[in-house]
Design a binder for these strands. Sequence first.
DNA 1: GTACTTGTTAAACT
DNA 2: TAGTTTAACAAGTA
Length: 289
Amino acid sequence: MPELPEVETVRVQLWAKLKNQKITDVTILHQKSVAHDKNFKQKLKGKTLSKIDRIGKLLIFSFKEDANLFLLAHLKMTGQFFVTDRKGKISIRGGHQDQNTDQSGLPSRHTRVVIDFDNGAKLYFNDMRLFGYLKLANKTEVETAKSRFGPEPTSPNFDRNYFYTGLRKRSRSLKAVLLDQTFVAGLGNIYVDEALFRAKLLPTRLANTLNKKESDRLAKWSGQVMLDSIQNGGTTFQSFLDADGQKGDYFKKLKVFARQGKPCVTCGTSIIKTRVAGRGTHYCPQCQR
DNA sequence: GTACTTGTTAAACT
DNA sequence: TAGTTTAACAAGTA
C-alpha cells in the first residue's frame, strides 16, 4: 500500500533514471490501466519527460513538447513501477511487490503498461488488482485533480489552525478523518495508525473532541512519521521495494501497524487490532486516549 | 467456498 | 451545502 513516503521515494528514483528521456514506444497490455484511452500510445510517443511532480499519492509527469499534456499515475493498492536498463536489468522496483515478477521476469503476468525510452530504459507498470492507473490529462484536468487534495502534513508550511478548525467541524473518527485525502493528503492506513500512536490518541476518538494541544500533537506526528519514513526509504510491507531492489527500512520502525498481539514499545500492553472506518486498525489501549 | 485485504470515488443519505 | 456512510472496484491470500 504505497502512501506518500513510498510514492515520493518512487518519484525521486524514476526521475533519476528517466529525466529528459524521450518515449520511443508504448505497449498497453490492459486497457483499464490507461483509463481505456484509445489514443494513449499515440499521444505519448515522441514526448520527452521534463518533470515528475507528486501531490499526495498521485504522480504527475510533464513533457517538453506539450505544456498541455500530463501523465497522471496512481498506484492505489498494488501498483508498482519497474525500470530496466538497456541490458534488461531491473534498476528500480517501487510500489507494491509483485511476487511473480521475481520468478518470471518482465513483463510479468501483472504488467499492464510498458513505456520504452530512447536511452534503452523501459518503464513497467505492474498492478495485480487493477485499481491503479496511468491517465493522460490536460492542464485543466490536472488542476481539478490537484484541487481535490488537502495540504500535506509533511509540509513545513502545514497550517495547524486549518487542521484544528477542520477537526472541530468533523464528527467522524480520527481514523476516518486522517484517511480523507481532501482534508489532509498523503496518509494511508499504515501512517494513520502510526501517527495516532505517537500522538497518544485513539483511532476511534471523534475528531471534534480534540483540544488544540491534542490537535497540534496529531498534526506534528502526521507529518513526522511520513518524513521519518522518507528518510528511511519507505515501508516494506508485502511490499514496497525501492531502487536497486532495496527494501524500505521503515517497516522496522513501525510501533503499532501489523504488531497486533505484540507488546507496546512504551508500556508493554498487548497491541489491539480492530476495525475502524472500515479499515484494519492497530493501537495501544493503554497509551492512546 | 468464505472472509479479508485497501485507496479512492460515486451515490445516497442526513 | 457540506459532511457522513456505504458499496463498489479487483484479485489475491489465509
